[in-house]
Simulated assay, not measured.
Amino acid sequence: MSLIKWTEEDDGRIRLGLPSDLDLPMAQPLLDSLRAAFKASADVGVQADAVERISVACVQALVVAARDAAEQGNSFAILRPSEVLADACEDLGLAGWLKQWRRA
C-alpha cells in the first residue's frame, strides 16, 4: 500500500497527495504513482504541503515528472509545496525549477 493519496477530480484531473516522509524508499512508489497518474490524465497535480522530509531521489522523481509532462504537452503542478520541499530544491539548485512548476 502506498502512502501517496490518489484523488480523481470531477474534471478528470488527478491529484496526488504526498505523505510527510518522502525518504529514499518512497522514491519508487512516488515515481510509479506519477506514471500511473499521467496514464489516467493529462493534468496531474502533486499536493506537497505535508512534506516534512524529502530525499534527493524523490526530488528527482518530481523533476522527471515535470520534464516528461512538458515533453508530452501535459499539465503538471506542485501544489502548495512545503517549506521543507522548497528548502531542498534551493539546496539542490532547483529553486527556479520549483518556481516554474509551483502553484499556490
Rank of each mutant, 00 (worst) to 15 (best):
A61H: 03
K99F: 00
V59E: 08
L3G: 14
P25A: 11
A37G: 03
R53G: 11
L30F: 03
L16C: 10
E90T: 05
A50S: 15
E83M: 08
V44M: 05
I4R: 12
S82L: 03
E90C: 03
G93I: 01
L31R: 15
L24H: 14
D49A: 12
V64H: 04
A37C: 05
S75Q: 12
S82E: 06
A27Y: 04
L18I: 08
L85H: 02
N74V: 02
V44H: 04
A70M: 03
A65N: 08
L18K: 09
W101S: 07
Q47M: 14
I14M: 09
V56E: 12
T7E: 15
D32T: 14
D23Y: 10
D91G: 09
A65R: 08
E83Y: 03
G93P: 02
I4Q: 08
A104V: 07
I4Y: 02
S75G: 13
V63F: 02
V63L: 06
P81A: 04
K5T: 14
L62M: 14
R102V: 04
L31D: 11
L62A: 09
A95F: 01
A77I: 03
T7V: 14
S41A: 10
Q60T: 12
G12S: 15
L98Y: 02
W97V: 07
R13L: 04
N74E: 00
A70F: 00
L34E: 01
G45A: 15
A40P: 05
L22K: 11
I78M: 13
N74L: 05
V64G: 05
F38N: 05
V44A: 06
L30G: 10
R67F: 00
L31H: 13
L94T: 08
A70S: 15
L3R: 15
K99R: 01
R35D: 06
M1S: 12
R80W: 07
V44I: 09
E9I: 03
I14F: 03
G45V: 07
A77P: 02
D23Q: 12
V56T: 15
Q100C: 10
R103M: 11
D11W: 10
I78F: 08
R35H: 09
A36E: 12
E8L: 11
A69L: 04
V51E: 11
A95T: 09
E90N: 04
L79Q: 11
G17F: 06
R35W: 00
D68T: 12
A69T: 07
W6D: 07
E90H: 04
A48L: 10
S20R: 11
L30C: 10
I14C: 03
V51P: 13
A88M: 10
G73W: 02
D91C: 11
D87S: 13
F76I: 06
L31K: 15
K5I: 12
